[in-house]
Design a protein around this nucleic acid. Structure first.
Length: 289
DNA sequence: GTCCAGGGAATCA
DNA sequence: TGATTCCATGGA
């Protein structure tokens, strides 16, 4: 494969740290020079900021790099309008948007997002990244670029014969059975990913995702929001989101006693059909700031 | 040693 | 429906 390059000139909404550190993805790593290198599908890419421009260089598994970048980084969507709309709704949200103004929600592969967020359950981000790297190194395809080896995220077929015991040895902990069962269900088309992508009904898609082992309400919502299903209205609630929502709007003494239903209700009232993006700004702001 | 992490499943009322 | 408890693992 030949190296390709693409220069994104002076984008309005685009910041490497905001995009890659906001918790939506696990396979991008900051380099010593401040650039980020990552892999999606069969693309290995480094992104470096130069002035107001971003230089993408790397190798592209299929088609051309520009198309892959536009799709993955959702570059046809106008985030300026979205941010303006959201900022008007709420003063705290306005603050959080200012903090994470360069966030874009990626179009990540559905299968990879399902497995990644099953692994995320009751886990921390460094460890999630480690598990995904070991999984990819063991079962994915190797791609070499500039003398370094990278590994694609394994397909369902590539995980077909992996045993629960092997997952345990890779450090998955109690999530071993869940990964095994979900992979099996998808291979047997008990949940058909192609059908999910074609179904416009978010509630129906969510119900199908919930039948997968290891996929509960929060993981299902992350899959809907962060994968190429791209449902910007869903509002995943984890410990950080519960924390920030309680601090700002509920102020209950014991934040762990705040019900999901109450948070969902407030989110829908305040943020409407862009609740997922609101969630991401609030999450990033509360966790980092 | 203790607590926590982008929770889910099983169990019980 | 709603609340409790247990589930591996590694880092702080």
């Amino acid at each position: 494969m030949k190296e390709q390059q693409y220069i994104l000139k002076n984008p309005e909404t685009f910041c490497l740290k905001d995009i890659f550190e906001c918790g939506q993805c696990f396979r991008w790593n900051e380099q010593e020079d401040g650039s980020y290198t990552g892999i999606w599908k069969e693309n290995v890419v480094n992104i470096k900021k130069k002035g107001k421009d971003y230089i993408f260089s790397g190798i592209c598994g299929s088609g051309n790099l520009k198309d892959e970048i536009y799709t993955y980084f959702d570059l046809d969507r106008n985030y300026e309008t979205i941010k303006e709309t959201l900022a008007k709704k709420d003063k705290y949200l306005e603050t959080s948007i200012q903090y994470g103004k360069g966030i874009r929600i990626l179009n990540q592969d559905l299968w990879e997002t399902i497995i990644s967020f099953i692994i995320s359950a009751n886990n921390n981000i460094p460890r999630i990244k480690g598990i995904i790297e070991r999984l990819s190194k063991t079962y994915g395809k190797q791609i070499t670029w500039k003398g370094k080896n990278y590994y694609t995220f394994p397909t369902p077929e590539e995980l077909k014969d992996v045993t629960i015991k092997t997952y345990r040895e890779l450090g998955l902990g109690f999530r071993d059975v869940r990964l095994y069962e979900t992979t099996k269900m998808i291979l047997e088309k008990k949940v058909d990913l192609k059908e999910l992508k074609e179904n416009p009904n978010t509630i129906e898609v969510r119900d199908r995702l919930l039948t997968l082992s290891g996929v509960g309400p929060k993981v299902a919502d992350c899959i809907l929001l962060f994968s190429d299903l791209k449902r910007l209205e869903v509002f995943p609630i984890d410990v950080w989101v519960r924390r920030v929502m309680n601090d700002l709007y509920i102020q209950k003494e014991d934040e762990t006693k705040v019900s999901k239903k109450q948070i969902e209700k407030i989110a829908k009232e305040k943020f409407g059909d862009l609740a997922g993006l609101a969630q991401q700004y609030l999450f990033y702001w509360r966790r980092e700031a």
